[in-house]
Amino acid sequence: MTIRAVVWGENIHEHTNAIVGGVYPNGMHTAIAAGLNEHPNIEATTATLQEPEHGLSEARLAKTDVLLWWGHKAHGDVEDEIVERVAKRVWEGMGLIVLHSGHFAKPFKRLMGTPCALKWREAGERERVWVVNPRHPIAEGLDDNFVLENEEMYGEQFSVPEPLETVFISWFAGGEVFRSGLTWRRGAGNIFYFRPGHETYPTYYDANVKTVLKNAVRWAYNSQGALTSIHDAPNVPVERALEPIVERGPRLHKAGEEGYK
């Protein structure tokens, strides 16, 4: 079994900020994909904002099992057509992993239906990530906590819908806490948000972070294939009712006519 993952990166800070370029000379998306490719059952490739269709054509998304998304500076530059394309594939069963500042990414906000806002501070402070759901597959192979010596602080309240599961909670040296690993289900698709990953720090080289992302890809993968029928809203004829019925009143639509969407 091979899980086909695509790591989507904004690919801007690496070229406009010397610090970020020094930490990730080949791009953050490339570093994330390299970590995923350490697992024998994951085949990770990359896509960026600058590519035609942002690297996410319908054909490519149709072959993608899990999409990872990192964005920050240019959320508004992502075309709405691509946002809807991603949401459609998640509803059909594609996994989605949203990283760090991707909490404001258009696809994530589209699927959450909330502002997805939070508090933040950029001070390079210590983050201790606590595993609060140790039996969860995403936490496999981790100790009860791990430390990132330098990270950007995110603090509550995090205005997202109540999650299906909370896997991680982070504590920062400045005193704030944050629900840093959350899951949801949208349609047939599994979604995981993971907080760490500020671009000026080497977070995606950290062994624990790489373990989380490899586990998350495996968890988000749906082996049943695309549930394309999730978009259908069929008009079921009277004669095809499971139990015999007699039509008893007037109707708006003719037999076989599509409804309004």
Rank of each mutant, 00 (worst) to 15 (best):
A33Q: 02
A117I: 05
L56D: 08
G35H: 06
E81M: 02
A59F: 05
C116G: 03
L111M: 15
K119A: 07
S57F: 08
G102I: 09
D65A: 00
E14C: 10
E38R: 14
L67Y: 00
A117V: 03
W69Q: 02
N37H: 06
G22S: 15
V20Q: 06
K119P: 00
H54N: 09
G9F: 10
G9A: 15
K73A: 12
N37T: 10
L111N: 04
K73S: 12
D80Q: 13
Q50P: 06
E79Q: 11
T48A: 11
L67R: 01
W8C: 03
G55M: 11
H54P: 08
V23E: 13
S57G: 14
Y24M: 02
A74S: 10
G76A: 11
D65G: 03
S101R: 13
L36N: 01
F108A: 07
E81L: 06
L111Y: 02
L61I: 02
V78A: 04
A47T: 06
E51G: 08
F104N: 12
G27R: 05
R121Q: 10
R60E: 03
A74C: 04
S101V: 10
N37D: 12
V20P: 14
G93A: 05
C116F: 05
E92K: 05
T64F: 00
T45Y: 04
K109I: 09
A33M: 05
G35D: 08
E14W: 09
K119D: 08
V86Q: 01
H100M: 13
H54R: 12
L49W: 15
D65N: 14
T45D: 13
M112F: 06
P107Q: 09
T46K: 08
A74L: 10
A59C: 06
K109T: 09
V98G: 02
H29T: 01
L68F: 04
G21R: 05
N17L: 04
D65C: 02
G21D: 11
K119V: 05
T114P: 00
T46V: 14
I42N: 03
G95E: 01
L36V: 02
T30S: 15
E38T: 14
W70D: 10
G71A: 12
V90T: 07
V83N: 07
V66G: 00
E92R: 14
T114Y: 05
P40Y: 07
H39A: 15
E53K: 14
L118G: 01
M28F: 08
R89D: 01
G76I: 05
G113Q: 07
F108W: 15
G9T: 09
F108E: 09
A117P: 00
T16H: 12
V23R: 04
S57Y: 05
P52R: 11
W8N: 09
A31T: 15
F108G: 00
I32S: 01
I12D: 12
H100W: 09
N17S: 15
W120Y: 11
